[in-house]
Amino acid sequence: MERIGIRQEALSRGSVFRLWIRRYRIWLAGLVLLIGLPFLLSGIFGEPVESGWPRFLQGLLIRVYLMAVYALSYDLLMGYTGILSFGHALFFGGGAYVIGILLKHFQTPLLVALLAVILFALGISGLVGALSLRVRGVYLAMVTLALAQAAFILSEAADFRQYTGAEDGLQGIPVPAWLDPAEHRLRFYYLTLFFILGAYFLARRLVNSPTGRVWAALRENEERAVALGYSPFAFRLLAFMFSGMLAALAGALNALLNKNATPSLLSVNTTIQALLMTLVGGVGTLSGPMFGAGLLELAGYLFNRAFGPLWFLLFGLFYVIVVLAFPHGLAGAWQQARALHRGPSRGSAP
């Protein structure tokens, strides 16, 4: 990375731009494809964009994008900072409940509600971080799990039924008409596409920043990082807060999509989902977990359609096969394939 940065200085602006295009051409092509996809699907199925199959598949893609951001946020913690949190559902589900309660019971304007979600997420992830970062490894996982379980139990508590709907969940969240995913799915599709891009660039920017480099240093060798002068707590807390913020926003948009927020969003299952998507996609690669989210969401849907009630069992088998076949995740397999394609002379980092 650094060497490329230095080479670029010797080049003119125009050629830098061309280099940039060439370097990211696969990504740019993918982006164009995603922007055009609703219309492409409409052409393939011969149906209008806002109805039938195209509409249904947009819904599926929206779900993929939201889970991709959720997985991305988990990778910031696990892959880049080396924090194994078992409480990520707290952020995702928390975001869903905060926006749901604000829209339904307080008639808050949408933008204000989203801002509130961000503030809530920064606060709660700061709190979870402050409490859990006193311990390491498995113990940290247990502390975060306990906090998330507390939120799960709270969401099912009958005492707050009028706000949370208790075990039924918060149903019928009023989404502003202009963004209602039932009425304007295409708009919602582009909103979430914009969201996933923004989240990815934010995360990329973070991990390449001085702060992000320290995250990597702490992951690699905490004792050494401390001896160099880095205080681990402050950096890890920051990682928690960014990760929590992205997860909560994904959860909030998910609540807008489904118009509900249920206790299951806060359950251990939701955390495990983040873990699986990250592992399948490739730990510590940012883009890998996003593809992992896509694979698991789409495969989950297909398995559900094809096998009915048995699907969860077979899906587990599918997961095992994927992990055995790609021990370094999809991203790892991709890098290996590219290294092979380039031939041994170019090679790749071991």
Binding site: M1, E2, G5, R205, L206, N208, S209, P210, T211, G212, R213, V214, A217, A225, L228, G229, Y230, A234, F235, L238, F242
Partner: peptide, 21 residues
């Protein structure tokens, strides 16, 4: 580079690429 950065004052500039420092 991380050793050099540790004692500087840019550790929390999370919006700047490290390669630009």
């Amino acid at each position: 580079r991380l050793a050099a950065q540790a004692l500087g004052s840019d550790n929390f500039c999370f919006w700047v690429p490290a390669a630009r420092l």
